[in-house]
């Protein structure tokens, strides 16, 4: 399992990277941490003719607390974000989800932006970005644009970047006051790819009612999906077992679930319902925020 040949570029600045993308377009791929890309290259399922490494662009490795959220540059490694103090305090859902991404060595090298751009249907970070309405900052030699997460993810392994664009950064909004969050997933193993997963952040009013819920689920078919109908239904309610169960049921009917050899579609749908319900109950009870359901 050796990759096919490619041309290698390693510009030392963002401008240099964007120039390469302008020149090579679809033939080029960005190499950041490589944790999603290189396995596919080794299997020869991807054979880019030009590989543009951004690993020498120090300007992209930032984790920055900005006014309206935590910005992670294209080279911000998952492990660093997971252990960033601001992230831990103000973006708990992101940090919880990162615990489930790959294995330790993968997170040491893998980047947050890389995982988002890869858009795997069972990846944790797209679900977080969707739930939180993250800003995806796309850059090209022609300029920058901010793409809302819901417009960034097009489908399984598909994003809306143009061939000359890269994901320069992502900005996750901070969790509001009186909010709690929960990321849970379940797989056939206690570690590794999930069958389904849920990213949830709930903001409570002073009366203890849910004032705003943000919910995204992944079920294997297509990319993770935001469950806006469930969010609307939860707004204003006191989250109890009955409400949580109903929210689970409702969400399960909304999402795309895959049936494959890991789990059939009916199971995935039922699992989505249970995970949503459990996530809501955890959030409502303030129990262990990053507990895995197994």
């Amino acid at each position: 399992m050796k990759p096919a040949p490619f041309e290698f570029r390693a510009p030392t600045s963002l401008d240099g990277v964007l120039e390469e993308l302008r020149e090579h377009g679809e033939a080029a791929r960005i190499l950041a941490g490589g944790q999603s890309l290189v396995p596919l290259m080794n299997l020869r399922m991807l054979q880019p003719s030009v590989l543009v490494s951004i690993n020498h662009c120090k300007e992209l490795s930032y984790i920055r607390s900005e006014e309206d959220g935590l910005a992670c540059g294209a080279l911000a490694r998952q492990w660093d974000v997971e252990h960033d103090r601001v992230a831990m305090e103000r973006c708990p859902l992101l940090v919880q989800a990162l615990h489930h991404v790959g294995a330790r060595s993968n997170r040491n090298r893998g980047t947050v932006c890389g995982s988002l751009a890869h858009a795997d249907p069972l990846a944790e970070l797209p679900a977080v970005a969707l739930a939180l309405d993250a800003d995806m900052i796309a850059a090209s030699s022609a300029g920058r644009r901010v793409v809302p997460a819901r417009e960034f993810f097009v489908g399984a392994l598909e994003n809306s970047l143009r061939p000359d664009e890269m994901l320069e950064a992502v900005r996750f909004p901070y969790a509001p006051a009186r909010s709690r969050s929960c990321f849970i997933e379940l797989g056939n193993r206690n570690h590794g790819f999930a069958i389904a997963g849920v990213a949830l952040q709930v903001t409570f009013g002073e009366d203890g009612r849910c004032s705003r819920a943000r919910l995204a689920v992944m079920g294997g078919e297509n990319i993770a999906r935001r469950a806006t109908d469930t969010e609307t239904a939860l707004a204003g309610s006191v989250i109890d077992e009955a409400i949580a169960r109903e929210a689970g049921r409702m969400t399960a009917s909304l999402v795309d679930v895959a049936g494959d050899f890991h789990a059939d579609a009916a199971y995935r749908r039922e699992l989505v319902a249970v995970l949503v319900e459990r996530a809501l109950m955890q959030v409502a009870s303030g129990a262990a925020l990053n507990a895995r359901s197994n």
């Binding site: 299997l43 056939n188 570690h191 790819f193 050899f261 890991h262």
Partner: peptide, 29 residues
């Protein structure tokens, strides 16, 4: 007992000839 399974589809394609999809126990299991 719990997870391992080599899967062929009806045409005889092996669907999980990799270690992401052929699941073996890890320490947490």
């Amino acid at each position: 007992a719990l997870m391992e399974q080599i899967v062929y589809d009806e045409d005889g394609q092996m669907l999980n000839a990799n270690l992401l999809d052929y699941l073996m126990p890890m320490a947490l299991d």
